[in-house]
Write a protein that binds this DNA or RNA. Sequence first.
DNA 1: TTGGAAAGTCAACAAGGCTGACATAAACTG
DNA 2: CAGTTTATGTCAGCCTTGTTGACTTTCCAA
Lengths: 171, 171
Amino acid sequence: MADRNAANLMGRGESLLFLTDDQLRRGIEAMFFAYRGFTADPDRILQEYGYGRAHHRAIHFINRSPGTTVNNLLSILGVTKQSLNRVLRTLVEDGLVDSRVGTRDKRERHLHLTEKGAALERALSEAQRNRMRDAFRAAGPEAVAGFRAVLEQMMDPDMKRHYLDGGDGPR
Amino acid sequence: MADRNAANLMGRGESLLFLTDDQLRRGIEAMFFAYRGFTADPDRILQEYGYGRAHHRAIHFINRSPGTTVNNLLSILGVTKQSLNRVLRTLVEDGLVDSRVGTRDKRERHLHLTEKGAALERALSEAQRNRMRDAFRAAGPEAVAGFRAVLEQMMDPDMKRHYLDGGDGPR
DNA sequence: TTGGAAAGTCAACAAGGCTGACATAAACTG
DNA sequence: CAGTTTATGTCAGCCTTGTTGACTTTCCAA
């Protein structure tokens, strides 16, 4: 076990990083297992409503950016419009999402959560926040900073842009 | 924006943690976007072979624990045995995985990668390790420690056990 | 020795990805 | 104004990967 791996230089200037394949494998599995935990609570709630993760993602980003357009959502979610449309259609039919024709550009549809949609969003995000909060507290503030730094580096540049855009100002 | 959230106490003893809903939302989106980056490279390779993520997961954990049984794999992957079986069947048919009837217990199948399977595993994990390595280096060693600490806290206890089991001894 | 539990397989269904083709309306451009 | 591009929606069909139910083989314990 524990195969050594040469060719490891360069920290962010502060130190050299010797990363064995085994250490990297641990990181890979950490992502896998943690992501499962991360989605477990919302998944349980969604199941009660007969929705899936795709619905959760749509609801999340509509809530984050009320009035967003279908096209914008597409670029964030990285799925096809047919795929997104199916999800969006059921959410509109079920009265969780309101789709309003644009005023400036009437081709666009601006998406908002209804009160019912906002209620589900709160239930979902509360569950997810609770787990995130517990993890953050248990790990401590420095760990949280490291967590964010590594995840940010792991994103594709395009997605990183969406991530950074979502914040309240810089940082 | 930036809604305050009371009821935030307790670091790991070192400090108080005030976590707003907005900070937690940022963490949630970090997980979402980073996981996409994390799977992007293997997904591209898998597509060339006509496989999906489910195949990758099976290959990964068979490689990690050669000779593992179907049942053990099931408890790690958290899917139904029927679902896993379909993936496993194609991998065996395609000559990537070898399924040997157990000697002690003939009900069990012990799973190994063939040379062909090991080759695909190397291609997949190399791509994933490269991204992880780059992210780790860019973020620095302290960030890596924090990353691991938070992810470990985010896992369900059962999955955490599998995660810890996978290491070379404790830690 | 026999009945239940456990491991694995086969069949059928559903969610949610995907591609391709096409329709409509609005906006833009020469 | 004619023609093109853009934004969105829809239909049809395919694939992966999850699900449940029914079944076989093997093991073990009463």
